[in-house]
């Protein structure tokens, strides 16, 4: 591969593409805020609700519902795509731009994490794990803009967990269907129902863990917010004019608490979801049975080719 030509960082074209990519990062979030402001009905008191339904279409089997969580997930995906394109814009061997260092750091960290947790056989999985982690973390973090976190909707996290469940099943079947079936009856046949439940509890526990953590953070934030606005109404309601209507106590204090409930919890859950994906998938491969099966097939092939010749 020949070395790419060094891009002219100061040229107008480079800057224009940069600006477009930054707009791609920021505009979806702004659009979401506008959408939320337009669609949310004005209400007083504690507001704890699930995802808003934006549109509903008739379909043959069941109505197709466009909810807030779908729209927010797509906006977050576009935003992450913009971020990735921005970080990798102008990549060279010599690293002209500072952002290349950030991109390299992210890639190295992800590769190292996957290699140390899944082994060398799965080293091609780094992009998938990084994608899951980024989507999950950014989906949880958009509640900092006052938007609904898609991960606070059980359907979203359950979808991801189902994806992971199918991957686990695929790798478990690698050792042969019969071997998998026999494995359910180990160590003694009485354990079969429990083993079966254990298989299906993996996606449920993964989905509910992520959803429960994000949702509990959101509920506590809403409760604190409404409590503080009520307190400031009773304490500072004597102020003249519109000053009395502004909930002054609500400024600042919820932000301190959201460092734990939103930022730490959201990023932590993203990391844990990715970690559990890695451990479950890499732990699902029956290495010995798989090797034995491959050996058997090889012998069968040789036999067939000999008999054909």
């Amino acid at each position: 591969m020949t070395e790419a030509a060094t891009p002219d960082v100061k040229s107008t074209r480079f800057r224009a593409v940069d600006g477009a990519l930054i707009a791609m990062m920021i505009l979806p979030i702004l659009a979401l805020i506008v959408l939320k402001v337009l669609f949310t009905p004005a209400a007083d008191g504690v507001q704890i609700a699930g995802a808003m339904i934006y549109a509903e279409f008739e379909a043959p089997v069941m109505p197709v519902i466009i909810t807030e969580s779908q729209i927010n997930t797509w906006a977050v995906m576009i935003s992450i795509l913009g971020l990735c394109l921005y970080l990798t814009h102008g990549l060279t061997a010599k690293a002209v731009c500072r952002r290349q260092l950030i991109a390299e750091w992210i890639v190295e960290k992800c590769q190292g994490l996957v290699n140390s947790n899944m082994g060398d056989y799965f080293s091609a999985w780094a992009p998938f794990i990084a994608a899951i982690m980024a989507l999950s973390a950014f989906s949880s973090l958009i509640c900092l803009f006052g938007l609904f976190s898609p991960t606070g909707d059980v359907n979203v996290t359950f979808g991801w967990a189902l994806l992971v469940f199918f991957l686990i099943m695929y790798y478990k079947f690698r050792g042969g269907l019969w071997n998998y079936f026999i494995g359910l009856f180990k160590p003694i046949p009485v354990f079969a129902p429990m083993n079966l439940i254990g298989e299906f509890s993996t996606p449920i526990s993964m989905a509910f863990r992520h959803y429960g953590n994000v949702l509990s953070g959101a509920v506590i934030s809403a409760l604190i917010g409404s409590a503080l606005s009520g307190l400031s109404k009773s304490l500072l309601g004597w102020l003249p004019g519109f000053l009395g209507d502004i909930p002054f106590l609500r400024i600042g204090l919820p932000a301190v608490l959201s460092i734990y409930f939103d930022v730490f919890s959201g990023v932590m859950q993203a990391f844990i979801f990715a970690m559990l994906t890695m451990l479950n998938v890499s732990g699902a491969v029956p290495w010995e049975e798989w090797a034995a099966r491959r050996e058997k097939r090889k012998k069968l092939k040789e036999k067939l080719s000999k008999s054909a010749a």
Binding site: F208, R209, G212, N213, L215, S216, M268, I272
Partner: peptide, 12 residues
């Protein structure tokens, strides 16, 4: 995080 799961089931 894994130990927290049982508590989260109660929360849900």
């Amino acid at each position: 995080a894994i130990a927290e799961t049982t508590g989260l089931y109660g929360l849900i």
